[in-house]
């Protein structure tokens, strides 16, 4: 099974760290694409409908909250896992209200991400 995954973060490093963590999971085959801002993320979601979206919150131009809101408005049904350093409880409440499946605190390693994907029955 091949899972198409879109990683959205304005930090190249953050995207690389998440890719590294995901690549350590040997039970799934991933096809990973990236976006460095919310606008590109929305475009890719509209055109390609990834199986899974990892989304940062604090980004320039269109932030993660706005991406979640747009996905909801446009009824684009992509499971979103928010990956953020913004750890305030109200941020978590807000992303769940906007339809996110999970909130993942930066930085995450392979065993943690594998467990979260299992918990959400992605793998």
């Amino acid at each position: 099974m091949v899972l198409s995954v879109l990683i959205v973060d304005d930090s190249k490093l953050a995207r690389a760290l998440l890719k590294k963590a995901l690549s350590g999971i040997d039970t799934i085959q991933l096809e990973i694409t990236e976006a460095s801002d919310g606008e590109d993320a929305l475009r890719q979601c509209r055109e390609n409908r990834p199986d899974l979206l990892f989304l940062d919150l604090t980004m320039p131009v269109i932030n993660g909250y706005e991406v979640l809101q747009a996905l909801q408005n446009e009824k684009i049904d992509v499971p979103v896992f928010v990956v953020s350093a913004d750890i305030q409880p109200k941020a978590q409440e807000r992303v769940f209200e906007l339809g996110a499946k999970a909130f993942i605190r930066k930085n995450i390693d392979t065993s943690q991400i594998e467990q979260i994907l299992k918990d959400h029955q992605v793998i």
């Binding site: 930090s11 760290l17 750890i87 305030q88």
Partner: peptide
Amino acid sequence: EIINIGMG
């Protein structure tokens, strides 16, 4: 990225 975590 490290500042991002501190800021969070």
